[in-house]
Design a protein around this nucleic acid. Structure first.
Lengths: 210, 210, 210, 210
DNA sequence: AATGAATGAGTGTTCATTCAT
DNA sequence: AATGAATGAACACTCATTCAT
C-alpha cells in the first residue's frame, strides 16, 4: 500500500472518528469508528496502533488546521499593537470555530488520551505540537511587531492556554444551557468565541504594549 | 446520623480520595477510597451518590481552599495596577501550590467528572463555582483598584482559565520529563508556578492599564 | 465471607469447570463456567485471579484426589517386589480412572495453563505438586519395600511421567477412534488403563528387582 | 510448481517455524513465520492448509529425525540386555538433544496442534507416526535382543511416552529455574537428558530381563 | 504463483453500583 | 448505619484466513 493510499485511508478513519466525537463528545468505541468508516474493526489497527492513537492523530490534525490559518495570519499582522491584537483575536476565534472538535479533544489530552500511549508515540506527539508552536512563533516574530522568538513563543503558548481553559470554563452540556440565563450561572453565559476574542485581544495588548 | 457526623465522614472520604489522587494522578477506584478511609465499599454510597460526585466534591473543596486565600488577597490589593498585578500573581501562584490536586482534577472535570452526573448535581456544582467566582469578584471590586463587578468577574474568569490551560500545556508525565531538556520540547520546559505567575501578572497589567 | 464458605464456592466453580472441560476437552470460557455454576461472570474473579488459575486449581485438586488414593496404597504394599508392582499398578490405574480430567488437564499444563500465570502462583503450584510427590514418596519408602526416599521419588516421578506420556500417545479424538482398528493405527489401539497398568508394573518390577 | 520446488519451499517455511519456536517456546504467528521465511503471509497457505498443519509437519519432521538416529541404533544393539539398555539409553538421549524442538512440540500436540485439524490430516499424521514406530520396532526386533514385533512396539511406545512425560514434568520456565535449588522444588532439579537416560535404561532392563 | 490488505469472530477482565443482611 | 458479596455491562485487540489483483 502506497504512502498516499495509507494517508487517504487514515484520513477517512479520522474523519469518521471526528464526526462521532463531535456528536457524542465522548471517545467513540473502535467498533463504532470502524463501522462509521465502513471498514472492519481489525482494519482500524492497520492504520493506528491503538484507540488512543486515533484521537491523538485527530487532535494533531485539528491543531494543524488551526495553525494553517494562524501562521499566515500572524505573519501579516501590522506593526500597530492594538490593531494587531484586534486582527489576531478575530482571526483566531474564526479559526477555532472551524475546528470545533479541537478544544474538546485537547481538553481530554492529559487525562484520557495520554493514558495507554507508548512513551515514544507520546514524545513524538508532543514534539510535533512543540514544532507547530515554534513555527507559529517564527511567523509571528518574522512579522512587523518586533517580537523576539521567545516572546512570540510565550505569547502563543499563553494564548492557547487561555483558550483551552476558557473552553473548559464555559463549556456546558446541553441540558444545563437553559439554566445559564439564571443567576448565578449567568456569569458563564457568554459566547465562547466572543470571550476568546476579547480575552485574547486584552492579553495581546497587555503583552505588546506592556 | 446528624449532619455534623455526615460532614465529618464525608470529609474523611474526601481526604482519602485526595491523597490517593495526588499519588496516582488518576481517579482511584471506589474500593481504594473506601479502604483508605477505613470503611466498606458500600458505605461510600451513603455519602456520595456516585464516584464522580466524590471528585466533584473534592474539586469544589479544593477550589474553595484556593478562594479562601485569594479572596482576602484581592481585597487588600493596592491601587497601583502594576503593584497589584505583581502582588496578586505571586499570591495566586502560592495559593495554587497549596492545593496541588486542584488543577489535575479541574482538568478532568469536563471530560471525565461530568459524565454520569445527574443534571441537578451538576447544576448545583456549577452554581457554587459561579458563586465562588462572584464572591472573589466582589472582594476584588471592593478593593482599591476601582474595578466594576463585571470587570472583576471577567478578570478572574480569565485568570483561572489561563491557569487551567497552562497547567494542561505544561504538565508532562514523569517519563517524558527527561526529554524536556531537548529541542523542540524545551519550549515547554518551564516551572509551572513561575509561568503562571508571569502570565497572570501580564494579563492583569494589560487589563488594569489597558 | 468465611474461609469455609469461600472453599465451598470455589469448589462449586471448580466442579462447573470440571464438567465443562470433561465434555469439551477444551478450556471453557469464563462466561461458560460462571453460567454453569449459576453465578455472574464477575463473581468468578472473587475466587480466582484469572482463568488459568481456575484450571491450575482444578489440576491440583484432581492430582490431590489421585494422591489420596495412592498414598495409603503405597504405604501398604507388600515386601514382595512382583506382588507390590502388581498391586500398585492395578490400584494406580483404578485411581486414574476416577479422575478422568486429570490427564487431559495435566497435558495442557506446560503449553496452555502456565501462560499468563504470575510467577508466584506458578511457583506455589509447582511446590504443592512437589510436596504431594514427596508425601507419596514418604509413604512408599515407609512401606516394606525398603526403598530410600530418593528411590521412591524417582520411581513415582517416572511412573507419573510414563502415565502422562502414555495418555498423550494413546488419546485419540472421537472421530479417529474408528480408524484405530486398521493398520497401521492399530498399534495405538489399546485400552489406556490396561496399558498404564502393564507398563507401570513392568517399570516397577524393573526398578525393584533391578 | 514442481513437487521438488514445493518440497523445498515447504522445508524453508518449516525451518523458519522451527527457529522461531525454538526461541520463543510458543507457536509463532503465521505472519512471523512468513516474514522469517521471506515470503508473504498468504503464500504460507499455498503450502500448508492451516497454521496447525505447519507445526504438525514440523513435529513429524523432528520425529523423523529422531527415528533416523534411533533406527540404525536399535538395529545394532548387542544381545546382552544390560549392555543394550545402556547403549540405547545413551544414544537415545543424545538423539533427543539434537532435536530440541521435538518434545515441546509433542507436548502441545494433543491440546493445541490437533485442534482445528481436519480429520483426514490428523489421520494421516497419526498413521505416519504409527509407521515410524513400526519401522523402529522392526529394526529393534530384527536385532539380537530377540524381541517380537509386539514387544518391540510396546517397549518403544513406552519409551517415548516416558520421555514425553518426563519432559513435561521437568520443564520449567526460565523464571522458575532459580527456585529449583530450594526444597521442595529440588526434587525436580534434574538434568533432563540424564534423567531420560537413566529412566529409559531402567525400563529397558526391566523389560528385557523381566 | 504470489501478494498483503481486509476481515471479524472471539473473550478475559474491571469496577461502579446494589441490596440483602 | 454499615457491610461486602454479587452483579454484568462494556470493549480493545489479535491473528488465522481469504481472495482480488
Amino acid at each position: 500500500m502506497s504512502d498516499d493510499e495509507r494517508a487517504v485511508r487514515s484520513a477517512q478513519l479520522l474523519q469518521a472518528a471526528r464526526q462521532l466525537f463531535q456528536v457524542s463528545q465522548e471517545l467513540p468505541s473502535v467498533a463504532a469508528i470502524a463501522q462509521a468508516a465502513g471498514v472492519a474493526k481489525g482494519s482500524v489497527y492497520l492504520f493506528f496502533g491503538s484507540k488512543e492513537e486515533i484521537f491523538i492523530a485527530l487532535l494533531e490534525d485539528s491543531f494543524a488546521s488551526l495553525l494553517a490559518v494562524i501562521i499566515p495570519g500572524v505573519h501579516g499582522l501590522t506593526a500597530d499593537p492594538r490593531a494587531a491584537a484586534e486582527d489576531f483575536s478575530l482571526l483566531y476565534a474564526y479559526a477555532l470555530a472551524n475546528v470545533p472538535e479541537l478544544l474538546p479533544l485537547a481538553a481530554m489530552a492529559n487525562s484520557v488520551l495520554e493514558k495507554n500511549l507508548p512513551v515514544a508515540k507520546m514524545l513524538a506527539f508532543k514534539e510535533r505540537l512543540a514544532s507547530g508552536l515554534e513555527a507559529a512563533a517564527a511567523a509571528l516574530s518574522a512579522g512587523q511587531l518586533g517580537l523576539h522568538r521567545m516572546q512570540a513563543i510565550d505569547l502563543l503558548l499563553r494564548t492557547w492556554s487561555l483558550t483551552l481553559g476558557l473552553w473548559q470554563a464555559l463549556d456546558f452540556p446541553q441540558e444545563l444551557r437553559p439554566h445559564l440565563k439564571v443567576s448565578p450561572l449567568d456569569v458563564f453565559d457568554r459566547d465562547f468565541f466572543v470571550e476568546v476574542s476579547d480575552s485574547v485581544r486584552v492579553m495581546w495588548i497587555g503583552t505588546l504594549t506592556g
